[in-house]
Design a protein around this nucleic acid. Structure first.
Lengths: 152, 152
DNA sequence: TAATAAAATTAAGCTAGCTTAACTAATAAG
DNA sequence: CTTATTAGTTAAGCTAGCTTAATTTTATTA
């Protein structure tokens, strides 16, 4: 069929344009916030998962315990993280995002959201319906793939 | 309609899961390659745009000229960049990716491609057709939005 | 041709982020 | 109760990445 590209090509083209844009935006977000990749990784980890101890953050980042401790220390000083003793085990420090950090992460997510909305704003009802269907399918597939990888 | 979410919700959910995955992958790519965010930014800039001088790279990264020069110097020593005199103006050094750097960037892109393929592998023909249509529309919209922003 | 401008580099100095090694405090095990 | 283990921090030292200031080389302009 002349008006239909292969799924492979379409995925490639979409990933290319989405990633190019995402990396560009992320770079500017780093510059604008003044935070490093390591610092933003900590904030994102805490946004997507639950509050946790110092070691878990270091493990997730692939750095040593002292590195995680120092990184957290700087973020605490910046007012982006809170460090509280775990009442059940006073050796553990529970690390969590401050309201300011939550707002910062939300703003980063919202920026991407605005870009996607701009993409779809001028589309017809039919095109929008197709996108709703397609992205719902993809999102579900992503979630089930993630559920699989947890068990493996 | 009960089985149809709003476009807004769908975009939000998709951006969330896609970004979470992308950031996770990107972090591991950095760790695995041993390259910093700044270094990868240079490689991506050169992948998406043409070869250019030192100043342009610094400008794109939002750093000073000496910072760009030093960054490039390290990447040249790593065998990822080539630095050649511009024959038309010998003050300018033309910076370009080496074959090794091209392969590195391609591998990063291919990894994301494989993830998307895994997402769509188990889908029905109808679902695949809807995704082809939707992502083609989104990719075109992204390109035309980018074309607009160049002129503004 | 002499002065000026432009592109890149070098030098000096700072901070972030990482390492390993040594240390403190709290819990678990014997 | 004493010993070992676990969680986290502190200390010392290194490199990357950034800055500003000074320098070198090439091109432009008066």
């Amino acid at each position: 069929m002349e008006n239909s590209q292969s799924l492979d090509q379409v995925l490639r083209a979409w990933a290319e344009v989405f990633m190019h844009r995402s990396m560009h935006d992320f770079w500017h977000f780093m510059k604008h916030s003044g935070l490093s990749m390591s610092q933003l990784s900590v904030l994102l980890r805490l946004h997507y998962h639950h509050a946790c101890g110092v070691s878990e953050i270091g493990e997730h980042l692939g750095v040593t315990n002292p590195a995680a401790s120092q990184l957290i220390d700087r973020l605490v000083n910046l007012g982006l993280l809170e460090r509280n003793e775990d009442p059940s085990d006073r050796r553990i420090k529970n690390i969590s995002l401050t309201p300011r950090a939550i707002a910062l992460v939300q703003e980063g997510i919202a920026a991407r959201q605005r870009w996607l909305q701009a993409l779809t704003a001028a589309l017809s009802a039919e095109e929008q319906a197709a996108i709703i269907q397609a992205l719902t399918t993809l999102t579900e597939a992503a979630h089930s793939l993630e559920a699989q990888s947890i068990t493996s």
